[in-house]
Design a protein around this nucleic acid. Sequence first.
DNA 1: AAATGTATTGCGCATCGTGCAATATACATT
DNA 2: AATGTATATTGCACGATGCGCAATACATTT
Lengths: 276, 276
Amino acid sequence: MTREAENQDETEGSGNARGGIQALDAALVVLRALAEFDGPVALIDLARAVSMPSSKVHRYLASFIHAGFVRQANRSGRYELGPLSASLGIAALGRNDFVNQAADAMPDLSEQTGMTVLLSVWGSQGATVIRWCRAPSPMVTSFGLGSNMPLLTSASGRVFLAWMPRPVISARLNLEVERAVEAGLSWPDLDLSAGSVDRLIAKIRGEGFASIDGRYVPGLRAIAAPILNWQGEAEASVTMISTSEQILSAAHPAVRQLLDFTQSQSSARSWKPAGD
Amino acid sequence: MTREAENQDETEGSGNARGGIQALDAALVVLRALAEFDGPVALIDLARAVSMPSSKVHRYLASFIHAGFVRQANRSGRYELGPLSASLGIAALGRNDFVNQAADAMPDLSEQTGMTVLLSVWGSQGATVIRWCRAPSPMVTSFGLGSNMPLLTSASGRVFLAWMPRPVISARLNLEVERAVEAGLSWPDLDLSAGSVDRLIAKIRGEGFASIDGRYVPGLRAIAAPILNWQGEAEASVTMISTSEQILSAAHPAVRQLLDFTQSQSSARSWKPAGD
DNA sequence: AAATGTATTGCGCATCGTGCAATATACATT
DNA sequence: AATGTATATTGCACGATGCGCAATACATTT
């Protein structure tokens, strides 16, 4: 195998990274690159992104598809992450994370409050719903597991807006503002100036929770609060959904219950720095 | 590389699965096996689980660790999924959004079958049509986007009846039964006893799809199947409408196409362990 | 219909993955 | 503490197999 000069950081000259398999290393680079794209990717683009011949990438993708980690969109071409990647992520999240503890406790919260509760984390595409606990009460379910919530107009997203390091969310924030401006959108409690966003952030942090009233999605109200790590950054967001206007008030018992819940969960262990 | 007999389903004799890389196939089997363990795994156990030599598995793991998909707990011992697996999964979750994906693929299904296809989710008023893909064939229908379908007497509704958590639908079910009783309605294949409903649910789940014949809405036949999420709950329902009586038979090709469609859109548990 | 762009696939060479077994290391027992 | 056992890690040599190139198939566009 005519190995190319794609060694990234190791001092090895003889082989690849200590004791690994070269083909696998290259393949994982491809997989990671695929994950970093926003949507379906053409083979050529993916190959360019990783600086490999198309045929090489294609063979990797064939194996990934065979295993279920990747799926090709239509008949013609583009590749995207497959269901097994999602399963892998769910398994990874459920390992030693706060996610498990929070998810285990969510049914209780849902039952006590009679509301639908969902748990989301910050992914490359924004706030992503990873757990979902339905309440018996009627409720609009136009989104489900894996939904990406908007940063500005969802309670879950606003939690990350307020408690995520600015650099992490800035790209997403710019994207959403840009799109809103292009679409000519305007919102009840938020214009698109930087000052308005900062004021919103300050308000959310001050109150300790974020909310969305029925003016964005008619009839839908939600409150959300962060699960914080010891650095005060949001690791996850817990959201409660209701059709009642009243939960938006800080005096409503649901707010108290939500904050109790997230604060008790915040003491759990959090993300550990990458191994490597 | 002394290749072992790890192909079990392909007819290929020369290589492995169509155009893939053997080492990568084997490595992904390992990763998948790792994900299926509950917690940290010892190398030996993982090797046994996939029937490979420890050294082989160890080299794969070295590459996975190097890429960040796997972490080893301490200096010595056990392996677990790493942060990159979580990132990958979150990205995949967003990309495998059932509703949008199904909606994107609906035109194809409509074209292949020549039938009108609609997509519904569970809303506060019951099954709610959110996408609508008309077939060229003329068809008079009185409902459109946002219509609420009955739980008992629509194919879409029956899907939710069968694949939705009982608490979620119970209120709606009671309401419909109550109203039917008050109105003195009676239906061809369903009386209003609890047992009858349970029998209907069992039948639908057994067949994998729900149907409505022309006796409820004269001249209108429909079949519907669920798009299931990771929890096995119905995330959405895909319905095909026809005026022909024949589609109600499970032998009709449209049923096959519908089930293929929904299963491909669901988070398939049907991924076979690729390796040996 | 021609043309362009892309995905897919033979093919032969030599690179590199593999199995075995030796070694290092951690853990349990006496 | 020392020994023993079990597991993780690593050389080594062979030859199977992954790789790049280029031809082909496929699809979409002008």
